[in-house]
């Protein structure tokens, strides 16, 4: 009875049971691999250790921010991006930099900055969960306020040149080859993954995002869950700011602005966007696709005028592809 036809049917049935999200993430991952192989076969530099290390390091800030956005977008859906992460990144970098300049122990400066970021996230969360503001308005308003505050503190100056201990998480390497930003990023990714997939909090986040009414009627504390998602996002934005400033060794009041929308886009590229959908791994793959393409444009010397157009096309094509794949699978069932 073990004819190939029977085996084929069995395989088909087995495949039919694989869930949509699994297919999408496999597809996304394959796309990343194909992209890397494609670029690598045209460039001798791409697969060198130096380039890989550089690309990963470049991806760190984006991934850390993206993980934060993943939390808020899963919880609140397409209206849920946290627009204040760029400004939180800036203000915490500024605060940490000024504390370091004032001779305060770097560990204390870091800790204070992270708490500050989480506190801004808490304000976002309170405005949204308790105040009932749409996330867009709450986080957009906070963004203006926080950016403004950063300008007030810095008065347009650039602060630069910090001590070696301060720059540790940006510059040092673990075991001599793992850049510290990558280590920090890896910790964030694992923690984010565990939090979303392995804890009841993660379950509640998905449940609230998938159907807020049903979650409420199931006895889930909806507003607390939303609150936590924005605190996580604020905390991670602060961490991204520290990594950024430690790496660039300088801070001015507008860093962070460039990352904001890209960090949101990579969540969508990674399968997020509807409440209750999306994952840390998806976001990471999305961010890597983004960074790898940017790296390829560096390697090929793509002129600056073309870069933005290519990035725009990349975002649209990736998300379109994602949607098409999902639609096909839905039709198959």
């Amino acid at each position: 009875m073990n004819s190939p036809a029977v085996a084929g049917v069995a395989l088909k049935q087995r495949l039919a049971q694989v869930e949509l999200a699994t297919w999408a993430s496999v597809g996304r991952f394959v796309a990343l691999i194909v992209l890397c192989i494609g670029i690598g076969s045209f460039s001798s530099v791409f697969f060198t250790e130096r380039n890989i290390s550089l690309t990963l390091t470049n991806a760190c800030v984006l991934i850390i921010l993206g993980v934060g956005e993943t939390f808020t977008i899963i919880t609140c859906g397409p209206d849920g991006p946290d627009l204040s992460v760029g400004s939180i990144m800036t203000i915490t970098a500024v605060v940490a930099a000024l504390m370091a300049k004032a001779g305060i122990f770097f560990g204390f400066a870091f800790g204070a900055s992270l708490l500050f970021g989480a506190a801004i996230g808490l304000v976002n969360g309170l405005l949204i969960a308790r105040g009932g503001l749409p996330p867009f308005i709450a986080t957009y308003g906070i963004q203006w306020a926080v950016f403004g505050f950063a300008y007030v503190i810095l008065k347009g100056y650039v602060v630069y040149d910090f001590g070696a201990d301060f720059r540790f998480i940006g510059n040092a390497s673990l075991f001599g080859f793992l850049p510290m930003p990558v280590v920090v990023m890896a910790v964030v990714v694992v923690a984010g993954f565990v939090l979303l997939r392995k804890t009841t909090l993660g379950r509640k986040i998905y449940a609230v995002g998938a159907n807020r009414d049903a979650a409420y009627m199931s006895g889930i504390d909806v507003s607390r869950t939303i609150l936590i998602a924005f605190v996580v996002s604020g905390f991670l934005a602060a961490l991204a700011g520290l990594v950024f400033v430690a790496r660039t060794n300088a801070v001015q009041a507008d860093i962070g602005a460039q990352y904001l929308l890209t960090a949101i886009a990579v969540v969508f590229m990674g399968g997020g966007g509807i409440g209750g959908q999306g994952s840390v791994v998806g976001t990471v793959v999305g961010a890597l696709i983004m960074t790898v393409v940017q790296n390829a444009m560096d390697l090929y010397g793509v002129p600056g005028v073309w870069r933005n157009a290519i990035i725009g096309a990349l975002i649209i094509v990736t998300v379109l592809f994602e949607l098409q794949l999902k639609r096909k699978i839905v039709r198959r069932n």
Partner: peptide, 25 residues
């Protein structure tokens, strides 16, 4: 129900704290 979540996730959605009191799923 949360229609886009799995059957198992829905089954446990009202009893998460009771079934997993330590917060780990």
């Amino acid at each position: 129900l949360a229609l886009i979540l799995s059957v198992a996730e829905n089954v446990l959605s009202a009893s998460l704290d009771k079934v997993f009191p330590r917060g780990w799923v």
